[in-house]
Design a binder for these strands. Structure first.
Length: 114
DNA sequence: AATTTGACCCGTC
DNA sequence: AGACGGGCCAAAT
């Protein structure tokens, strides 16, 4: 297979993971990449969202690991993302999502939150 | 072919 | 919580 095919496959896997994020829940870029079988490719996920044109893709459910929205504060995308998240019942405060993204993280499962 | 760029992440302070 | 430095990787210059 060519490099281009591999890239297309990776893109498809990432999109699939994002589409699988349940309503009202958020995921970090790195975690999306991990679930797609591409550890360390968080920036690739970001690239995809930046160039994404699919209106059905729940891109707004992807945030940074610290819970913050990745776009520059005040930008149109920033506003839209906070709005969409709030519409799903997610608490967003000054561009930051309250609930921590790492839900299935090993540490959290063993030690619990906090 | 080298450099820059970006919707990133982590450890440390 | 916030600031800094270093690392990361693919695509665009």
């Amino acid at each position: 297979m060519t490099a281009g095919d591999a890239a297309a496959l990776a893109h498809a896997r990432i999109l699939q993971v994002i589409r699988a994020i349940p309503r009202g829940q958020v995921l970090g870029y790195g975690e999306v990449a991990g679930r797609a079988g591409l550890p360390g490719r968080a920036r690739l996920v970001a690239r995809l969202l930046a160039g994404n044109d699919d209106p059905d893709l729940p891109w707004h459910r992807v945030v940074r690991t610290d819970g913050r929205i990745a776009l520059p504060e005040g930008s149109p995308g920033w506003c839209e993302q906070s709005q969409r998240l709030r519409a799903e019942g997610v608490a967003v405060e000054k561009g930051r999502v309250k609930r921590a993204p790492r839900v299935n993280d090993l540490d959290v499962q063993i030690w619990g939150p906090g």
